[in-house]
Nucleic acid binder design. Structure first.
Lengths: 254, 254
DNA sequence: TATCATAGTATGGTATACCATATTACCAAT
DNA sequence: ATTGGTAATATGGTATACCATACTATGATA
C-alpha cells in the first residue's frame, strides 16, 4: 500500500549545479521509514488473503515470531490491526484465529460492495478526465491476459486494479478503502468465483460492459453493469459457500 | 459494543425443578472475560470521540500508561487497533496522534453514509416485523427528549440508537459496523451539527419523516427521507469545517 | 553577537524475560 | 469407564532494557 520511495525523485543528481533548479529549491524529504510493523502487517495480511493460513487456523504468537524473525510485540500489534480489519478474530482464552465466513456475512459484503462500486462507477462515468480512457483500457487488458494465467492471484490483482482506477477517478477514496477491507474478508471466495467465472466468458463480458458504460459517460448504464456483475459474482459465491456448508457442517472451509 | 452478560439470562432460577425445563437443561456460559485491552480500547476510543483528546493531539505512550495504569504493551496494542479504525494516525518518528479531518474526507464519509443508511432504511421499510414499530417509536422519543438535554453526548447516542435499530432490523449488520466506524471519525462534527440542528426543529422533523416512511412500509419515501436528512447534516458540517479552516489555516480543529 | 557543536532529554521501536491463568492432553486411580 | 490430578502449552499481561532518532539547550568559538 505504501511505496518505498524514501527520497525525492532526484536524490542528488545535480551536485554541480546546486541551487540552479528554478522553482522548488529543495523538495521536502518525506521519508516513510517503513517500520517493521508495517512490513509484518502486509506480510501477514497477504498470507491470510492468499490462503496460506486457512480460515479457522490458529495464529500462535511465538511460532509466528520465529517464522517472521520479529519480536512478540510486533506480532501482537499486527494481530490487533488485522483484528480491526476483520481478518482475524480473537477467541477468548484461545487467542487469534483467521476469521471464518458464512454466507450471511458474505451476502452482506456483496450488498455493500454493490452500493459502493455502483456509486463509484456512476460518478466516474460523469467525471473521468481525458487520460483516463487509456488507463481503463489497459486495466481491462490486464484482466484479459490474467484470465489465461494459472496464478489466480494475478487475476484477483488485475480486477482489483480495475476497480481501484474507477474509485480513484471518482474521488471515492474512503469508499475504496472500505471495499478493499471487505474484499480482504472474502478473498478466498473471490478467488474461487473469479477462476470459475473466467472459464466461461461472462465475467470478462460484464467487466467490459462496465468499462464501456463508463467511457461512454453513461452513469445509469455503469450502475446497471456493476449491478449485474456483482450479482453474478454473489450468486456464484453462494454456490461455493452452500457446498462448503453442506460438506462440512461448519463454515470453516471458506 | 460488547455487552457484559457473562451468565445466561436465568442464572439458576430453578434449582428445585432441575432438568424440568424442557429444551436446554443448561445454557452454555459464554463468558467474555473483558480483557484489559478491551477496556483500554473502549476507554480511549470514548475519550477521543468525546473530544477529551483534541484532534492532532499527540498520544504519548508513557503518560498514557501512567494515566490508565497499564503497561506499554497494552497501550500500543490499543493504539494499533484505533489506528485501523481511523481514529488515530501514526506520524513517522513522532508517534500516534488523534486523527484530523478535512472536508474532503468528511464529504466522502457523508456520501457513504448516505448510501448505506438509505439502503438500510429502504430494506427496513420492507421487512420490519410486528414489534418493530413501538421500538422505533421509543427511539424517536428518546431523541426528542435528548434534544432538550444539555449533554450533547446523549443526543448523539440517541440518534445512533435510532439508526442502529433500522440497520439491525434490515439485517445489515456489516453495513452498520461500517457506519459506526465512520461515525467515530466524524463524531465531533456530528456533535456540532446535531446540537445546532436541534435548536431549529428541522433535524427532528427529518428523523420523524424517516420514522414515518419506514413504518408505512414505503421504501422509496424512506430512502428519500434519509437523503434529505444526511444532505442537510452534511451541509451543516461543511459550514463548520469551512469555518475552522478559515480560522486556523490548518484543519486541526475539527 | 552570531554560529556551530556538543550533550542531554524525550520518544518511538524493538527485544526479551517473567508471571498468572485457562485450556488441553495424558495418565493414574477407583 | 469414569473420575481426578498433573504437566504441557499458549495466552494475557507486565516490566525492563537497549537502540535510534528528533528536539532542545547549553556552551565554545569565531
Amino acid at each position: 500500500m505504501i511505496g518505498q520511495s524514501y527520497l525525492s525523485p532526484e536524490p542528488n543528481a545535480d551536485t554541480k549545479s546546486l541551487m540552479k533548479s528554478s522553482e522548488p529549491p529543495l523538495q521536502k524529504i518525506d521519508k516513510a521509514p517503513q517500520t517493521l510493523r508495517d512490513i509484518v502487517q502486509d506480510r501477514l495480511r497477504e498470507a491470510i488473503i492468499d490462503g496460506r493460513f486457512a480460515p479457522g487456523q490458529r495464529l500462535v504468537e511465538r511460532p509466528l515470531c520465529d517464522q517472521l524473525g520479529v519480536s512478540r510485540t510486533v506480532i501482537r500489534e499486527t494481530i490487533r490491526f488485522l483484528e480491526a480489519e476483520g481478518l482475524v478474530e480473537i477467541l477468548p482464552n484461545r487467542g487469534p484465529v483467521v476469521s471464518t465466513l458464512d454466507w450471511a456475512q458474505a451476502k452482506q459484503i456483496y450488498d455493500v460492495r454493490l452500493l459502493l462500486e455502483g456509486a463509484a462507477a456512476a460518478t466516474c462515468a460523469q467525471r473521468h478526465g481525458q487520460n483516463f480512457a487509456p488507463e481503463l483500457d489497459r486495466a481491462l487488458n490486464y484482466i484479459k491476459t490474467a484470465m489465461g494465467d494459472t496464478e489466480w492471484a494475478n487475476l484477483l490483482q488485475a480486477t482489483t486494479r480495475f476497480y481501484e482506477l474507477i474509485f480513484k477517478e471518482a474521488g471515492h477514496i474512503v469508499a475504496w478503502e472500505i471495499v478493499q477491507r471487505l474484499n480482504g474478508r472474502i478473498s478466498r471466495l473471490r478467488a474461487l468465483t473469479l477462476s470459475t467465472r473466467s472459464r466461461d466468458g461472462k465475467g470478462l463480458k460484464q467487466l467490459t460492459a462496465i468499462h464501456d458504460a463508463i467511457l461512454s459517460r453513461d452513469p445509469n448504464a455503469a450502475l446497471q453493469a456493476v449491478e449485474t456483475h456483482i450479482t453474478a459474482a454473489a450468486t456464484a459465491a453462494q454456490g461455493f459457500l452452500k457446498d462448503a456448508k453442506a460438506g462440512l457442517g461448519k463454515d470453516l472451509q471458506l
